[in-house]
Design a binder for these strands. Sequence first.
DNA 1: AATTTATGTCAGCTATGTTGACATATTTTT
DNA 2: AAAAATATGTCAACATAGCTGACATAAATT
Lengths: 177, 177
Amino acid sequence: MADNTGANAKPIRTALSGEDGIDLAIIELFFFAYRDFTSDPDLILAKYGFGRAHHRVLYFVNRKPGLTVAELLDVLKITKQSLARVLKQLIDSGHVTQVQGPRDRRQRELYPTARGRTLALALARPQSRRIRAALESSTTTERAGIERFLKAMVNPELRAQIDNLPGNMPGEDHGKQ
Amino acid sequence: MADNTGANAKPIRTALSGEDGIDLAIIELFFFAYRDFTSDPDLILAKYGFGRAHHRVLYFVNRKPGLTVAELLDVLKITKQSLARVLKQLIDSGHVTQVQGPRDRRQRELYPTARGRTLALALARPQSRRIRAALESSTTTERAGIERFLKAMVNPELRAQIDNLPGNMPGEDHGKQ
DNA sequence: AATTTATGTCAGCTATGTTGACATATTTTT
DNA sequence: AAAAATATGTCAACATAGCTGACATAAATT
């Protein structure tokens, strides 16, 4: 008997391809597209000593100013200990500021500062430029199809979080100009 | 003078939205879509004590059996020290096997084993299912538009890496079935 | 007054990336 | 044949960003 376990396992020489009814084309396109999509802001963040974790916090604080720590944790799906480090740096560097909740004084409402708004815009700009370039030769119908596809890729129960952001209509298209 | 720096910075209460010509809709759809897209395999990987790093290695070893360590490093854009840990675990667990390069005996060709192929398929299946569901009500034209968009989101110099994978025609559509 | 809630903080652990230095086998160049 | 370059492996130390568990404080709720 041949030993086909551990380091002696027999190599498979045929490439995995779509014959199993698996959509490898979109799987790997999505992988590469997202990787390059995030690489633009990464270059800017590095100058501030920030990472993607900072980007995510800054993004949502700008998209929904005044959200509480608990709300932010719910969107990011991380622990408060994890958030604490990143948030502290953003506050110390003057990109985010905390305001005591007006109704419930235990809460800390998070707001961007002018500096934080500027950085959030600087991070979004190259991403938006990349999107615009990628959509250049697309028709209005194609754009609508792309938005519908991306939204359908999100877990149904999380779609509410998207709809909760300013300017996003529940279950509607996201057409902007 | 008001002190608008550090912890005393003035909060901005208006939400960031598309008025700066920035495509926030697709930025955040892409963010949420990719997050949930990767969550499916994460659940399976956890059962093996593997993470996303293992997934990426296993994916490309299956997509291009026989690639060398150097080629893999080039696709993943990580250091060999980083790859070493993850690759060792995949080899020890019998998912990947190494074969001495036939022409250049310094090279180690990487191949999936039967077990590695099975796991790669198991990881791709829920992702493909999610894609199929998201494309359900899409026309052929819309699907083509989505693929063209995703490919256009990738850095031009990296598109060659996609085209190098089996079944992907350079600059062509990725239509399957 | 007691309990629950929102937040903060300390300590330690894990996964995945990094750099630098060096070893080994093999191929290429001189 | 000797020297240099290349492909890979390995050791050590470090950074980032996640995690769990435990505990503290202030404020709201019961």
